[in-house]
Write a protein that binds this DNA or RNA. Structure first.
Lengths: 162, 162
DNA sequence: TATTGTTATACTCTATAACTATA
DNA sequence: TATAGTTATAGAGTATAACAATA
């Protein structure tokens, strides 16, 4: 009791396809963290494929999306919301600025802070990115079914707030 | 329709705790890949904390577990099963071998191949690792509830096989 | 003194090419 | 000619320390 009903990982053969002796995952079949990681990797792969042509990485997409939805927010606020360390975010923002997608406006009250905004080009690109992201999402929904897809969010958010 | 019922991400303030203006995640609230990533990071953090004292990383734990459950398997088979590139696996195995946890036995039929086995020390350590992993798992079950925990595996495995 | 954004840097993970020894 | 394991290396992603400007 406690693990008997969980179906095992699909067995993989040496060459990745059906042929010889299959490998058993043992205890790994009952490690949520491992299954989570493999699932995230698969989803990430599809995301990467779809966004490669636009030269946008997942972190860049998340940054652009949050700036669009919170125009004028500071880098510290953005860093905290996305769990990206401030030094890494500074480099990421610099790249988006060089591409003319983001602008740093001098903040009114605090002259240390940069209020982040999308440029017109940034808004235009983000609209295209959202369209690609929706197609990616539709792909996942087709894979899981809408009901199962929706039921995933709540438990995953509980894990985020561990 | 199609996203209205999905509850949004918990709002984060600049300092990470309740204080000022909260940040909205916008479209990111409906990106399974993003929620999956954040969940995986949280779970990974707990795993890291618990295994740090034993100086074992997640990839090492998965390798030891698969060798224990498939004694004598080749590095190519292991590489394919865990989706670890062969060059990276070679380095990982070398480390486990230096620590006296794994041994590479000359394969009977094919003299190029290494049949992987755990040493006695490897088996002893793995038993301790599984105990720690079970405690970690219990923590996740306490967070989600057993029913929800169990229901996560099936859809996540579907995503792995995208 | 503390905080914002930045630079420099290091460490891990992951990915590819090229080698060796076998097959 | 192809495969098993290895080496070297390059690229992301992520982490900390230290700095200038400002609070």
């Amino acid at each position: 009791m406690g693990s008997a009903k969980i179906k095992p990982m699909r067995r993989r053969t040496s060459s990745g396809e059906a042929e010889g002796a299959a490998v058993g995952y043992g205890e790994l079949d009952h490690r949520l963290g491992y299954v989570l990681r493999r699932a995230q990797m698969s989803v990430l792969d599809d995301f990467h494929r779809r966004f490669a042509a636009l030269d946008i990485r997942p972190a860049q997409y998340s940054v652009l999306t949050l700036i669009a939805n919170n125009s004028g927010l500071s880098q510290t606020a953005l860093s905290s919301a996305l769990a990206i360390k401030k030094p890494n975010l500074a480099v990421l923002i610099a790249g988006l600025r060089r591409r003319g997608l983001v602008k740093q406006v001098a903040s009114a009250g605090d002259r240390r802070a940069h209020a982040l905004h999308l440029t017109e080009a940034g808004n235009k690109l983000l609209a295209r990115l959202h369209a690609v992201a929706e197609a990616h999402e539709k792909f996942l929904i087709d894979c899981l079914g809408m009901a199962t897809y929706r039921r995933l969010y709540s438990p995953l958010r509980k894990l985020i707030d561990l």
